Simulated assay, not measured.
Amino acid sequence: MAGTLYLCATPIGNLEDMTFRCVRVLKEADLIAAEDTRNSIRLLNHFEIRTPMTSYHEYNKIEKGRKLVEKLQEGLDIALITDAGTPGISDPGEELVRMCREAGICVTAVPGAAACITALTISGLPTRRFAFEAFLPTDKKERALILEELKKETRTIVLYEAPHRLLKTLELLLDALGDRQVRVCRELTKKHETVYEATLSGAVSYYKEEKPRGECVLVIRGKDAEEIRREQQQSWEEISLEAHMEQYLTKGMDRKEAMKQVAKDRGVSKREVYQALLQQKED
């Protein structure tokens, strides 16, 4: 029988966040695949875990992934850990999970800490709906596309950033999204954990004077839905009623349904649309 791949969440800073189950699974596994073995050995030594370890990271995820799948097919149980937090979230574990699923290998999670969820829950911003973007792309064109999408995002936005790129990222976000509320969460679960509350413009000013330290999670308020509605209404008002109607008629709507949708777009009653169209026809 094939083995099981265990996605083991490890602490993001505070070793007390290691779960009893995670320690047991890491001890019982046949092999541990770690993003950085030099970093993980300290964690394993602390909990007296002697299981053999191998590296699995961004630069060997395909070749090494195939080898790990072969070992799983041979019946070995493998535990996957990242440098900190939950494997598969913004790390190469996502690729290994896909390969295992395609091979029919059982994949299960040993849940625990995740920086994105930790920051979101203590931010004070809406948590019911959120969009996780991890790190913004380094490629300018790809990054511009993501920022363009985020302009109209009404959900709370969660991003990761390294301290040396924090100021530049805040400036990019301010330019793209406008002056939204933001929380800059640093050193999560550690002794010097901080949550800096500001607007994006305020955060830019602050970090021009204060050098950021430690990995950061940015939690940004989504765009107000009412503001989007007003913008959409304004854009519709820039075209004629006939052109507005034609957009829906060409999609196969009958005239009655088209008038109803046009009225909704413009924030008026269907009767007002009917009367305006009638008047334009008479004129």
Rank of each mutant, 00 (worst) to 15 (best):
N45M: 14
E242G: 08
L218P: 00
R21A: 10
L44R: 02
K208F: 04
K260A: 13
L44A: 03
E209H: 06
A33E: 00
F132G: 04
L44N: 02
K281Y: 04
R98D: 10
G267C: 13
A263I: 05
T138I: 12
G104D: 12
R50I: 00
Q275P: 03
E227D: 13
V25C: 06
Q234H: 09
L26A: 03
R266N: 01
E193R: 11
P163N: 00
L120P: 01
E153Q: 14
L147Q: 08
Q232K: 15
L72H: 00
C8S: 04
M1D: 03
M259C: 10
R221S: 08
L96I: 11
G252L: 05
A225S: 14
V158P: 02
H164M: 11
V158I: 15
K223V: 15
L167D: 02
K251R: 14
L68T: 01
S201N: 07
L200E: 03
K260V: 12
R229D: 10
S235C: 11
F20E: 14
L44F: 13
K67W: 06
E215W: 08
Y248R: 06
P111V: 04
K140T: 14
A225W: 07
T51F: 09
M99H: 05
P163C: 01
L80K: 01
E16H: 03
K71R: 15
I62M: 01
A176F: 01
V204H: 05
I32A: 00
I117L: 12
T86V: 03
K67G: 12
N60G: 12
K151A: 12
H46A: 13
T194S: 11
M245T: 01
Q233Y: 08
D254T: 07
R186H: 13
P126V: 11
E210Q: 15
L76F: 08
Y56P: 00
R155D: 05
A113S: 11
P87M: 07
Y56F: 14
V268Q: 09
R143W: 09
L241M: 12
M259A: 14
L166M: 03
T199Q: 13
T154I: 14
I122Y: 03
Y248S: 05
G202L: 13
R183P: 01
T138C: 07
E272P: 00
Q279N: 14
F130E: 02
Q261P: 02
E242K: 14
H192A: 06
M18S: 05
K191G: 00
R165C: 10
D139I: 12
P137L: 02
E171H: 09
R24F: 03
F47S: 03
E94I: 07
T138D: 13
T37A: 04
P137T: 00
A243S: 15
A243V: 15
T4S: 08
Y274S: 04
C8V: 15
Y206G: 01
Y160I: 08
K190Y: 01
T121P: 01
L172P: 01
E58N: 10
Q247K: 15
H192W: 07
I122M: 04
A258L: 07
K67P: 03
R183T: 07
M99E: 11
A176I: 02
E142M: 12
L277S: 13
W236F: 13
T54M: 08
E16M: 02
L150Q: 07
E238I: 07
Q247L: 13
A79F: 07
